[in-house]
Simulated assay, not measured.
Amino acid sequence: MKGLKIFSVIFLLVVGGAGGYGWYLYSSMKETASQIYEPREKKKSDLREEEVSVHKQDPISILILGVDERKGDMGRSDTMVILTVNPRTNSSLMFSIPRDTRTEIPGKGIQDKINHAYAFGGAPMAVETVENFLKVPIDYYIKMNMEGFADVINTLDGVEVNNPFAFDYKGIPFPEGPIHLNGKEALMYTRMRYEDPRGDLGRNDRQRQVLKAVITKAARPSILMDLSSLLKSLGTNVKTNISPEELQQMAVDYRSATQQMETLQVMGKGTKIDGVYYYQVSEAERDRIGQKMRGTLGLN
């Protein structure tokens, strides 16, 4: 989420910054982009013949990870969202992979929940596991600390969503219909799943709701007024393998494609194996999702 917000903010600075103040804001954003950057260990996905180039406006895929990291504990990826963006067709695709999805963890020789991949090897292992699951290349990742998510939402003065049904979660009421969420409320709204009749699938829908709301609000020019607070929050809560130069290019060439976003749902069924709950996704369903991704990426 925050990574996409960076695209929007940089875009505004590049095309709308004026005089010395505009250059100051742009320089500050570049500093933050450098701070959150984690250089890639490998230059391209094994599922690609050539490395993608945002300077050539190649379609790209991004794995967005929401993690609960604590001191001495890498944690697990509580949220896994895939975003594919094609600036050539001005289109994008977004979907969530349920955290309990059962799949092979590459190099471990085991079947496990897909969100455990992050605990085994951080973002690179999560990327490799998703690629193995869908047989589609993942070019970049953005990982965010879920606890820092509230700070960014507060900097944006909250977000608006349309809640499909009323519920309470940890003492916070969420009425049905259009509601305004502050940072803490947005975090709780995206975490509840046991009271949702659709379980993790319903929670995934709410995560995508908030993600879209953040992208829309971050594109408003008024975001510049709170830039210093936003930069501080981004710099301490986000890591990505997208370089500052790539972020700058994406802000110019990819931003409009994220406004034409298709969403879909990974279908499956819950089951217990040896007393552990898993979400089972058939090979046919993985092929369907992979085909949609390849279509957006121009790989069909």
Score class of each variant (00 low, 15 high):
8 S>Y: 07
10 I>T: 02
14 V>R: 15
18 A>G: 02
20 G>V: 13
20 G>D: 13
25 L>R: 15
26 Y>F: 15
27 S>L: 02
31 E>H: 11
33 A>L: 11
43 K>W: 00
45 S>G: 10
48 R>I: 03
52 V>M: 12
55 H>L: 12
58 D>T: 11
58 D>A: 13
63 L>Q: 10
64 I>W: 01
65 L>D: 13
66 G>C: 05
67 V>W: 05
68 D>H: 00
72 G>C: 05
74 M>F: 05
76 R>I: 02
89 T>M: 08
92 S>Q: 06
97 I>M: 08
108 K>R: 15
108 K>M: 14
109 G>M: 09
115 N>S: 04
118 Y>K: 02
118 Y>N: 02
123 A>R: 11
125 M>Y: 00
126 A>G: 09
129 T>F: 04
130 V>P: 10
131 E>C: 13
131 E>W: 11
141 Y>N: 05
142 I>V: 15
146 M>F: 12
148 G>N: 07
148 G>P: 06
148 G>T: 03
150 A>E: 14
152 V>A: 12
152 V>Q: 06
154 N>F: 04
156 L>C: 07
162 N>H: 09
162 N>M: 00
165 F>H: 11
165 F>V: 03
168 D>W: 10
168 D>R: 10
178 P>H: 01
180 H>T: 11
181 L>Q: 06
183 G>N: 11
184 K>M: 08
186 A>P: 11
189 Y>L: 02
195 E>P: 00
196 D>M: 01
197 P>C: 09
200 D>K: 08
207 Q>F: 08
207 Q>Y: 05
211 L>Y: 00
213 A>F: 02
213 A>W: 03
215 I>V: 15
218 A>Q: 05
218 A>T: 14
220 R>C: 01
225 M>Y: 04
232 K>V: 06
233 S>N: 15
234 L>P: 01
239 K>H: 04
240 T>Q: 08
240 T>K: 03
241 N>A: 09
242 I>K: 02
246 E>K: 06
250 M>K: 03
260 Q>C: 01
263 T>L: 00
267 M>G: 01
268 G>Q: 04
268 G>P: 01
269 K>R: 13
270 G>D: 13
270 G>N: 13
271 T>H: 00
279 Y>Q: 07
283 E>W: 01
285 E>D: 06
288 R>W: 08
289 I>Q: 12
290 G>D: 10
292 K>R: 15
292 K>Y: 03
293 M>C: 09
295 G>H: 08
299 L>Q: 09
300 N>E: 12
